[in-house]
Design a protein around this nucleic acid. Structure first.
Length: 773
DNA sequence: GAGCCTCGAGTTCC
DNA sequence: CTCGAGGCTC
């Protein structure tokens, strides 16, 4: 147990023993319960307040946990007595359901990965080439262990910690300020820091602390964590900062975001500066003078790994010179000046019990390995992806043998690892342990969910079910996609609910969502009769199909008559009276659905789930066509895959022939089109304003060319923005070009611009010109 | 036509 | 997170 955690329950002293001699919860009277809840609330709140900044907490952690457990038990037995200030809710700060979102002043990027020595040498070569350095020129890098925790950005203004945010998707994270303040390694105040300073680093948990925490959790009857990283993540993301305060979290600083004044001229200098300000910097951080030195340092850190006392998953190298870092800049998701050299993934052998096929929303048949559960990298894995047909067969997309041509069979012993420490994959097969009766796996040529043909297009890696909305798996996945975050994002209608409603026959397609309330009011929710639902699953050879329907109907086992009766009953029962719903949640659901009848064009386009058309493409299309009517007309006009409408579509930067054909086909096919029309009939589609071409912008009427890589904008965005400001964007530089915006890596176009005497500026200058935002 | 970069789609476990 | 494939640049 760490020094920070007061002690074990048996060291709790008289108070603890007294607490434990309480009346069992089951025997409490109402009045006793009420009194005790008040006392527990007082005590726990006081403990939470006292905990911060004092060496010795008022009560030991084990007792704190017991009091909290008792409070929860009493609340469970007497829910009506639960206090408004219940300690089981958020302590201190105003109760919040989730963390507030925080937009990072500077994006928190991830790092490119390297696995081999070769990758590191390539990294060095690439950087030298990019910077135009000669082979022998000196170039140093910092190296430091890559801590296996979660990244955190700390914002200090005038030396005070004002905000702590998780990485999130890099652009927007979660505000965990109250929690970060409870971490001992994170200073509340800095002296001598720039006015604005964002410190970035990793929150982690030491092995010993992790084990002590798990022991405590187990004793308190709460869930234990699979590994220190999960424990650290789970602890930081507590809505109750009082809980975080009791978790032994630590913090290493490794970088920074926005700063009002430079920290130093080198990476190493900046880290020293951060250390001087009071941050912990990893003690294994060193300076390397080239790839050979970096690899030697990698070997040293790998050696030291087992003794460190905390998890690391590789080594990070960064160009030391900050001016060079700036010249190298960033790609869309990673800096060019840094790379993470990952340790080999942990491997584990286990038995492949079965190969199952899942059907996705596009009809893709994906094989999933069902494994005898095995621990890999601290997590128990029982499923793993097998990618596709070729991967199982031991062939690559060109039909060449891979992995020595070992085909994977049910019953085999397979080697599993977690790619990027997350996604379990099957890496290898032990042929010597293959059972004699193992047959080569035959990839199905019909859809296991609906029996339709599953066809593999020429040159495609995946086999797809052609059943469309006939296929229950595709229908459910389409519905899930429809309600997902970037699409309709209907509160109270998540994956579980749509799957359930589909099984009950209440929803067949997205349009049905908007008629649900009406059907609910008339006590006839089912669009598919119970008899039909039952016939459907009885036609399915797999017993789990029946079981799933029975479960959706709220039964434990398949019994045709009972299922039929339940389906009838549920269809006729208002949602508000169905178990697990209630008046308020039903009301909220219908309100949320109604609120989404008005939907922005880009969300609608994404929600349709047309192949190759994702979030980004939907946004582009919406900006170009503006309104639903305009968009549909364009799809119809382009149906022949030729003509001006087709040219306009494929002329959009980011839309090629494949996506265009996919779009046009979706609107031309009678059934798919009818489904779309049924949906849109329920909606009011908000136009997306292609910001009106401004006549007065500094670039209005000019011809602009973008070249090289842009860092703050995608090319498509840059083009759209420039056009919105009245500029014409061209692909090649000519005498007619007014302005060239050249990012790093610009080649022939920048040279041509120089030859022609065309004005050339960099991306930042461009953003200044058009007014930033 | 090759090579790079980004997007889309599919994946697991908590 | 990773793979595959689409789309763009050179």
């Amino acid at each position: 147990m760490s020094a920070r955690n007061g002690g074990d329950n048996d060291t709790g002293g008289p108070v603890a023993r007294d607490e434990l001699r309480q009346t069992p919860v089951a025997e409490l009277t109402q009045a006793q319960a009420k009194t005790e809840l008040r006392r527990l609330a007082d005590e726990l709140h006081r403990a939470d307040r006292k905990y911060h900044g004092e060496d010795a907490p008022e009560i030991p952690d084990a007792l704190y946990d017991k009091l909290k457990a008792r409070n929860a038990a009493i609340e469970e037995r007497f829910p009506d007595l639960k206090r408004p200030d219940s300690p089981s809710e958020t302590v201190g700060a105003a109760p919040a359901e989730t963390f507030a979102k925080v937009t990072h002043a500077q994006r928190m990027l991830s790092l490119a990965n390297a696995f081999e020595a070769e990758d590191i040498r390539d990294f060095d070569t690439r950087i030298r080439r990019y910077l135009g350095l000669e082979a022998g020129a000196p170039l140093s890098y910092t190296s430091e262990p890559k801590i296996d925790g979660l990244s955190l950005s700390l914002r200090y203004e005038a030396g005070r910690l004002v905000q702590a945010a998780t990485r999130g998707d890099g652009a927007v994270g979660e505000n965990v300020t109250a929690n970060a303040r409870t971490i001992g390694d994170i200073p509340e105040r800095l002296t001598g820091a720039p006015t604005v300073l964002e410190v970035r680093g990793e929150v982690y948990m030491r092995h010993a602390d992790f084990e002590a925490l798990n022991a405590r959790q187990a004793e308190a009857g709460e869930k234990t964590f699979a590994n220190p990283r999960n424990a650290a993540a789970g602890s930081l993301r507590q809505l109750d900062a009082g809980v975080t305060a009791r978790r032994p979290l630590r913090f290493f600083a490794y970088g920074w975001g926005e700063v009002s004044a430079p920290l130093a001229e080198t990476q190493m200098g900046a880290l020293d500066r951060l250390q001087g300000l009071g941050f912990a910097i990893n003690e294994l951080t060193t300076l390397c003078d080239g790839p050979a030195d970096m690899l030697a340092q990698y070997a040293r850190i790998e050696q030291a790994r087992a003794e460190l006392g905390y998890d690391i998953d590789g080594v990070v190298y960064k160009v030391d010179d900050l001016a060079l870092q700036q010249r190298l800049g960033y790609r869309s998701t990673t800096p060019r000046f840094a790379i993470a050299h990952k340790f080999p993934a942990e491997l584990a052998w286990t038995r492949l019990e079965a190969i199952d096929i899942q059907v996705g929303r596009t009809g893709a048949l994906s094989p999933v390995a069902r494994l005898t559960p095995v621990t890999v990298g601290g997590v128990v894995v029982s499923n793993a992806t097998l990618h596709n047909e070729d991967y199982i067969a031991g062939r690559d997309a060109q039909g060449n043998e891979i992995r020595g041509g070992k085909d994977i069979r049910e019953g085999d012993w397979v080697q599993v690892y977690r790619a990027g420490d997350v996604i379990p994959k099957v890496a290898d097969v032990d042929l010597s342990r293959r059972p004699e009766d193992a047959d080569p796996y035959r990839f199905p040529e019909t859809c296991p969910e609906c029996g339709s043909a599953a066809i593999r297009e020429e040159g495609d890696a995946v086999r797809r079910c052609i059943g469309g909305m006939i296929c229950p798996a595709q229908a459910v996945e389409k519905l899930k996609h429809f309600v997902s975050r970037g699409a309709f994002d209907i509160e109270g209608l998540g994956e579980k609910q749509v799957a359930q409603f589909y099984r009950l026959g209440w929803l067949r397609e997205p349009a049905d969502i908007f008629t649900l309330q009406e059907r609910d009011a008339s006590h006839r929710k089912a669009l598919v009769s119970p008899a039909e639902r039952i016939a459907r699953v009885e036609a399915d050879a797999r017993p789990e199909a029946r079981l799933r329907l029975a479960e959706a109907a709220g039964l434990d086992a398949w019994d045709r008559a009972a299922v039929h009766a339940r389906l009838e009953e549920l269809s006729a029962t208002p949602l508000a009276e169905i178990k697990g719903w209630g008046a308020k949640s039903a009301e909220n659901l219908f309100a949320a659905i109604a609120a989404r009848r008005r939907i922005a064009l880009d969300r609608l386009l994404f929600a349709l789930g047309i192949r190759h058309v994702g979030e980004t493409a939907s946004r582009l299309l919406a900006r170009v066509y503006g309104t639903w009517e305009e968009f549909v007309a364009a799809m119809d006009d382009a149906a022949g895959c030729t003509g001006p409408a087709w040219d306009r579509l494929t002329g959009i930067d980011g839309v090629g022939a494949v996506m265009a054909r996919s779009l046009v086909t979706a609107f031309a096919q009678a059934e798919e089109r009818a489904g779309i029309e049924r949906l849109v009939a329920q909606l009011e589609v908000e136009p997306v304003e292609a910001p009106p071409a401004q006549q007065d912008s500094p670039v209005a009427g000019k011809t602009v060319v973008f070249t090289g890589s842009l860092e703050k904008l995608t090319r498509a965005e840059a083009k759209a923005r420039a056009e919105a400001l009245g500029a014409t964007v061209s692909g090649s530089v000519s005498a007619k070009t007014d302005l060239v915006v050249a990012g790093p890596g610009a080649g022939s176009k920048a040279r041509k611009a120089a030859d022609l005497g065309v004005e050339t500026i960099d991306e930042d200058a461009w953003l200044d010109l058009i007014g930033g935002a």
